[in-house]
């Protein structure tokens, strides 16, 4: 039996490789999620019934079913419709599409939380609808929704662990593989748990807090 120190020496490179894939999946997943969130929130607030309906349906379907089911559907069923995705792509796409649906509600909530007076002032000052959104409404909404987005990004990071189930070689996958060759379960899974915790607490949370402070300074509040 290896000691924990020897275990780390032996398997750290493999775990590190997995961590890099997890970070890639997380970064690409965030990209997809943000795009989906903004698009779907805009659709849900659109003045036309058909567009609004599509936004609502998207959000309800993706929030109403499991990410794992969606991922398998994208990976195993979409090829039957002629769309074959590589497992890496299917992985972050599923994660982004799913978390994006949750993000859409945050975007909508943030925009609706901006006081009406701000709209009225922008209209009174003769801003075009686009400038009104870009310069007045959205920056304030963004500041309001950054804290819940911080939580959502941690959910997203955790969600990327599921891509291991379609054989993307992320941190989860590596720890599973190490476990099946060494049977040192506590060490393999425990180390992976700690790495996930470190990414969440030392990268995602402080990163979001930094972003929040920068935006608050830019809007010169607080």
């Amino acid at each position: 039996m290896l000691t924990y120190f020897e275990f780390i020496q032996e398997y750290f490179p493999a775990l590190l490789k997995g961590t890099v894939v997890t970070l890639e999946q997380t970064a690409l997943g965030i990209l997809v999620a943000v795009l989906v969130a903004v698009t779907m929130a805009s659709m849900k607030m659109a003045p036309f019934f058909a567009i609004r309906w599509f936004g609502i349906a998207y959000i309800e379907v993706f929030r109403g079913t499991s990410l794992l089911v969606q991922m398998y559907w994208i990976f195993f069923v979409l090829p039957l419709f002629g769309i074959t995705l590589e497992k890496f792509t299917a992985g972050f796409l599923a994660v982004g599409l799913n978390l994006g649906a949750y993000g859409a509600e945050l975007v909508r909530g943030g925009i609706q939380a901006v006081p009406r007076g701000q709209y009225e002032a922008a209209v009174a000052l003769g801003f075009s609808p686009f400038t009104r959104m870009r310069r007045i409404i959205f920056p304030q909404a963004l500041l309001k929704m950054l804290p819940p987005w911080g939580n959502l990004l941690i959910e997203l990071l955790k969600a990327t662990a599921l891509v291991a189930l379609i054989s993307v070689t992320d941190l989860m996958f590596m720890s599973k593989q190490i476990n099946s060759t060494t049977f040192m379960s506590a060490q393999a899974f425990g180390t992976a748990l700690i790495i996930y915790y470190i990414i969440a607490r030392l990268i995602v949370t402080p990163g979001m807090r930094g972003l929040e402070n920068r935006l608050a300074r830019k809007l010169s509040i607080g």
């Binding site: 990327t160 599921l162 189930l165 720890s175 899974f189 425990g190 748990l193 969440a200």
Partner: peptide
């Protein structure tokens, strides 16, 4: 802050 699926593996195998 850690994935549920990993926790499930952890409990089951440890």
């Amino acid at each position: 802050s850690t994935p549920l699926v990993l926790q499930i593996f952890f409990v089951f195998y440890v």
